[in-house]
Design a protein around this nucleic acid. Sequence first.
DNA 1: CTGTTAGCGCATTCAC
DNA 2: GTGAATGCGCTAACAG
Lengths: 326, 326
Amino acid sequence: MKSRPTIVDVAARAGVSKSLVSLALRGDDGVSPATRERIVAAAGELGYRSNALARALRQTRSMLLGVVVASLDNPYHTEVVESVERAAEQHGLSVLLAHGARKAGRMAERLDALGDLNVDGLVVVSSWADPALLQAAARRAPVVMVGRSLEPVAGIDSVNNDDERGAALAVGHLVAAGHERIAHLTASRRPAGLARRAGYEAAMAAHGLAAQVRVIERERDETAGPGLDAALAEGFSAVFARNDVEAFDVLDHAWDQGIDVPAGLAVVGYDDSALALRARPRLTSVHQPRAEMGALAVELLRERWSGRAADRHEVLTPRLVVRASA
Amino acid sequence: MKSRPTIVDVAARAGVSKSLVSLALRGDDGVSPATRERIVAAAGELGYRSNALARALRQTRSMLLGVVVASLDNPYHTEVVESVERAAEQHGLSVLLAHGARKAGRMAERLDALGDLNVDGLVVVSSWADPALLQAAARRAPVVMVGRSLEPVAGIDSVNNDDERGAALAVGHLVAAGHERIAHLTASRRPAGLARRAGYEAAMAAHGLAAQVRVIERERDETAGPGLDAALAEGFSAVFARNDVEAFDVLDHAWDQGIDVPAGLAVVGYDDSALALRARPRLTSVHQPRAEMGALAVELLRERWSGRAADRHEVLTPRLVVRASA
DNA sequence: CTGTTAGCGCATTCAC
DNA sequence: GTGAATGCGCTAACAG
């Protein structure tokens, strides 16, 4: 509302120069205890807080971390964001969150806006991103992509889970339970989806089974319609879905058709997001180690700040969380 | 990464003063077309973007809008955030999103952090907030609360839907469908929950029916357990839940117990969030006009900037969206 | 040692 | 069209 007190106001009130206020408030030595106390008291009385903008402008570091997330409506994404935030906080970094980066145009705009604010680093949480955009952003601040790109993007670090291995875990579990007609349902032609699909196909082959991939187009704000029903009508005994959101849809449609899960149809999802616990029956799902992924993303940025030049692409190992659906 | 080009670099390259660069780039008159073109070209070649921090520091306005949301895991909240963002963009405001304000301590910290960045205004999207915290934040920038507080907080504008009326819509719909044993399930002692409960009780009384409120404690990250089952065992013919999340739980537990919805149990939720479309059967729910709410929140801030001193508390009218669950 | 002065960082604005 | 002042906090160099 009213203009906030500045360092000059504090200095005046404490009867010292503004330089000393700066030193005192940041715990520098070379300030006598008595004076420091006076300054701290003055600051307290005025409700002074240093202006983050001014500080960031003067220093090279803003201590700001930009996080761009594709959308807020996939629980897995928001869970990754939270883990990034936790890690950031531990290093005294403030997170600025931007979302809606599902379209390249908006993604570019968000990245630019964060860059304009002098963020020290960027974390992009998305299952897809235009390499050129990432590289453009990386000219301003180091960028870490949490999620897959088709192939490594030069100059961009990345953190991922091993989608192929995750898919193999799902298939292995279903095969061990005696399933043979195992379908893979996917709606995505994006990298993570492709990797899971490839992992599924490889695992099926390894078990001597025929891969059955069904691509289900998903409408915006809707659960997949007729395509999904048609796929279920084929009589598979088990389904490995590309992610929890789609596994959730499978459960819904199975419910509509009176198919009993898991007896009539076993379902395995991917991400182990909050959705897995909301589902009935509770969803068996491949867990991505998101807490580690967030921490690692921040760690990679810190390494860049310390001068690392070579790209790093970290791939973490997922694990299967078995619940009631398979 | 490398230090970004400044206005001085552009000025040097175009052979003019930096003042003129500033004027030209912001479309001021009084710059000859030829010169302007030279300047724009120079800026383009250098990839110059004005430093948002420096601009905010110089001007009184930062054009930054802070949005604090209780949590990212309630779809209704994130949908409100998106509508605020859309409205903000139309006025050239950038949104800085912060979350995790479920605890007062963290809320205070987030508000402070945004204040340090000189946001021009704050929107708090939450079903609860400590009035003292809001007022503290309001000393730095105008604050709008989207959601209910127990009573109006002096100095803080608010945007809400009429919870009492929404509850009455739900009850009216169920009564019209012939229901008499209508329970209200709630887990919340927070303002919005209380208002809906009061609205439910009033509506039941108006219809000459006995109110049946059941308070179901919800564990973190879990759907309500035994309490919910016990309530369902009482044999109500319809349930009005405090919000979609809890209505979703009701559907799950009904499913567990083999209760057919809506034949054996009609269910109505509140918020009409994305969850309503995920539910099976699709959830009948009270719709809060979130698009208008977001736009209104931004509008209220703009009025404050224009000098309005009196508080405004806007209450919008909800409507019932009838789907399959009731 | 304790504290001050001067100037920086970047874009905007006003008097000339 | 320009130079100088401004906003706010940090910091190098300097004085007591």
